[in-house]
Design a binder for these strands. Structure first.
Lengths: 330, 330
DNA sequence: CGTGGATGTGATACCGATTTCATATCGTAG
DNA sequence: CTACGATATGAAATCGGTATCACATCCACG
């Protein structure tokens, strides 16, 4: 059933029906007639037909590197909370860390399918940049910084610096690092640099043998911890770029009789829910993921409204959470 | 720029452009012309205009009770994998466990906005049923059973039964339960029944004092464990409906000097990633969440293709994962 | 050589809504 | 009493595509 059939059924004009669903200027008796016919027939207007003319999709495209990650789902929850209240729905694309899917979903979103885009990417290539430049709708980037776009990011450098410093302040001498892929500016590079700064400030040096690069998984953390402990002089402190990596490292320690924190301190980033209930409760850094989602969504809303070309970067701060995994040695 | 402007620019007819993006029957020279003009102009056809005529949205509506849950995001990942390969995108609605949002998103999906719907609901009311009946596109339900619909569910009863039986076989005498909301047929009622059956088969009785109902969170598990241990006779075994609840219960034990498994065994369901690295590694039941998403998506695809009215229920089995939290007492 | 199927083509009707426009009615301010 | 703004209305143009249709080639087959 389409609008004209329905209009006939309701005994009003097509325009009246359209007005009923949009603004006003409609007499009460017609309003009643339409309401009654609506219940009788179950008619629902077609969204795509509406979009063709009005250009409004009430859809926001969200590009994510993966779904089953605690931090990402928290960001998404924040986004969903804010945009849901404003009547927007989320068109979600899970790229599974595949650049090609990232690119192709940007392409997809150019097809007038969404009113705005939120991008949680880990790496930016030139292709990303050129596609982003072609976008005809506002874009907000969460978790990374990119010039010329509204961004919400975390103080990754500071978080890593503070966590490392916390451990160093307890007198450890051979700090090790399990970082993330360097191409990831935020979780990779910035966190690594934060670690290095703290180590240097403590008058120590960062030996490449004590630096491993892991994927964002527990399994990978486990493997890299194993490699760290294959060095002659064992590390007495491991800073891990994420809690997942830290959990993997801790599992390795547990299985190999290495005591945390007495033999080795372990610190992570992310404040995962499981940190409190780990084998040894994990010291970590709380990043405001949900807030990032909320603020990013708000930025997008305001950019959609004003279409302003002024972009800003919102950097969220962090909270150190100290637990047993970095407790004082004696 | 629209299709006729673009056609003029490319020096071909409107039909030729449409054919370029759809099937074939187009001479190679025109194909080349269009490709060149495409690069020159950056033209992208409008999806909604296409949809008005062709009815195809290439969108699947997915309704979820929450985003930041490991089990749910694993299901979603499965869905996304399968549907992404077939060129579908996901229109995601996070209902935040709010029935009204669940209802309103079903309304939303009636507006010819999606080609199919996947529903991960926890509770079914009459309103749900009547709205679902009005749907004009195929619907698949994951995690619950509902007559008249294609469903993928888990053997929740069996999982709970087996986990409880595992603990009882180790000689515990005062089993306790922390279950989920009974309105949730699968995770609430079925798992509780599985527990009860195992307890009765062991010749024991289920005292209401040893049954608590928790929300799906660690905090709630913690609280309910506290209540269980306020009984005069302490439980020596707690079956928890989910791993999150189990983690909370374990945290309570840890903080109160109750030894797991020596003083109390703890078992969960869900095989959360963190189970291995908990304070005491958690015995749990692996449910095939990702598989559920994959199979549900496949069901939807085949229903969209065949429009068959035959519905089936796919019940996935489970694997017991035995770890230290239920290790033999001596 | 005639016929028919596969291939290729552009004009145009059509999809289902919104928006514009020309017009009507009514209360009220001047 | 007139003029004007606010309210109300339906016909028709419009949005940007796809589907249909009538028609043109071309090659192969009997």
């Amino acid at each position: 059933m389409n609008i004209s059939e329905f209009a006939k059924e309701a005994g009003v004009s097509v325009s009246a029906v359209s007005r009923y669903f949009n603004d006003g200027y409609l007499a009460d008796d017609k309003r009643e007639k339409i309401k009654a016919a609506l219940e009788r027939t179950g008619y629902v207007p077609s969204y795509s037909a509406r979009t063709v003319r009005s250009k409004v999709t009430k859809l926001i495209g969200v590009i994510l590197p993966k779904l089953s990650s605690e931090s990402i789902s928290r960001v998404t929850e924040g986004i969903s909370d804010v945009l849901g209240k404003e009547g927007f729905e989320l068109l979600l694309v899970n790229t599974a860390n595949d650049y090609n899917r990232e690119i192709s979903s940007l392409e997809l979103f150019r097809q007038n399918r969404v009113d705005g885009v939120i991008l949680l990417a880990s790496v930016f290539t030139d292709l990303h940049r050129s596609l982003l430049a072609k976008m005809r709708v506002p874009v907000v980037i969460i978790g990374q910084q990119l010039k010329g776009y509204n961004c919400v990011c975390h103080n990754d450098f500071g978080a890593a610096y503070s966590m490392t410093k916390l451990m160093l302040s307890k007198g450890v001498k051979r700090p090790a690092l399990i970082c993330a892929n360097h191409d990831d500016k935020a979780a990779g590079e910035d966190r690594r640099k934060g670690f290095e700064k703290a180590v240097e400030e403590a008058g120590l040096t960062v030996d490449p043998k004590y630096c491993e690069t892991a994927k964002f998984s527990m399994e990978s953390g486990y493997e890299k911890a194993k490699r760290l402990f294959s060095n002659r002089a064992k590390p007495d402190c491991i800073f891990c770029a994420t809690d997942n990596i830290a959990a993997g490292a801790m599992l390795y320690c547990r299985e190999n009789g290495i005591k945390v924190p007495d033999d080795v301190m372990i610190g992570g980033i992310g404040d995962s829910r499981f940190g409190r209930v780990l084998y040894v409760p994990l010291s970590t850094v709380h990043l405001h993921y949900k807030t990032a989602g909320i603020e990013g969504a708000k930025m997008l809303l305001s950019e959609m409204e004003s279409r302003s070309q002024v972009h800003r970067i919102l950097q969220l701060e962090y909270d150190i959470i100290e637990r047993e995994s970095t407790a004082k040695e004696n």
